[in-house]
């Protein structure tokens, strides 16, 4: 799988993502500076976590106007696969490649903790490594992860199977109003969503930080294994 990772000024989880991709796919991804204007021949583009442009103005808002984004839009229009994690998810909503927005966490504080994600739709390239209803652990680390969208959009996401991951308890219980189950207060406990064609995915937590048995767990591995199966075939 040929993957590329976009680096904006202030991106800070690009090395984590590169490590995960290298570990699982066996190939080091291409690092793409935000001033570049061509993606080249890629199977997957990843927008990683961090604080692009310091998160000044709004998280992801300035990165959405970086030179590389025009090329990423074209890549999306051609049906390319794009994964945005954390700040990358915020860039995708700010670019309107995914619907909705990410507001301040409901508790108004930065949150860094392990959370549990329930796989809602296991038929996509991003989720096929799991079964629907599976629950896995992932660290989250963000100040602005409270997903929101209009009632119509939320209804469409639900109806079209575009909710990829939902926050839950370790046993898979989903409860929108419970801070233990839904730490940042996201609408319908949404942690990750898909574009209409199912090829652009954004999520707030960091599966890339749990891929290495040597530092504790491999809960995030199915995301990357599934992508390899889907995109290399």
């Amino acid at each position: 799988m040929k993957a590329g990772i976009v680096v904006f000024p202030g991106t800070n989880r690009e090395r984590d993502m590169a490590h995960a991709l290298k570990l699982i796919t066996g190939h080091a991804p291409r690092m793409i500076w935000h001033h570049e204007t061509s993606l080249g021949d890629l199977d997957l583009v990843v927008l990683p976590g961090g604080f692009s442009f310091g998160d000044y103005l709004r998280s992801g808002a300035m990165a959405a106007h970086s030179p590389i984004m025009a090329e990423i839009r074209r890549f999306a229009e051609k049906g390319g696969h794009i994964l945005g994690v954390c700040n990358g998810f915020q860039v995708l909503t700010e670019s309107h490649l995914l619907p909705g927005a990410l507001l301040r966490n409901a508790g108004l504080r930065f949150l860094s903790q392990d959370c549990h994600l329930k796989v809602e739709n296991a038929t996509t390239p991003y989720t096929r490594g799991w079964k629907s209803g599976d629950v896995f652990r992932a660290p989250l680390a963000h100040g602005d992860g409270n997903y929101t969208a209009s009632p119509e959009t939320l209804q469409r996401l639900e109806g079209e199977g575009r909710v990829a991951f939902r926050y839950s308890t370790a046993s898979g219980h989903v409860s929108h109003d419970d801070r233990h189950a839904n730490p940042n207060g996201s609408a319908l406990s949404i942690a990750g969503i898909l574009s209409e064609n199912g090829r652009v995915c954004g999520l707030m937590p960091h599966p890339e930080n749990l891929v290495d048995p040597e530092i504790g767990a491999t809960d995030g591995v199915p995301l990357f294994k599934g992508l390899v199966e889907a995109l290399v075939a």
Binding site: R109, F110, P139, E208
Partner: peptide
């Protein structure tokens, strides 16, 4: 307090605060 600090960025934090007497970073 810890939950307001990103303890996992870098992907090398093997033991986070409270998990061991000292933090372990690979």
């Amino acid at each position: 307090i810890w939950n307001q600090y990103d303890g996992s960025v870098g992907g090398n934090t093997a033991r986070r605060p409270g998990a061991a007497d000292a933090a372990i970073v690979r």
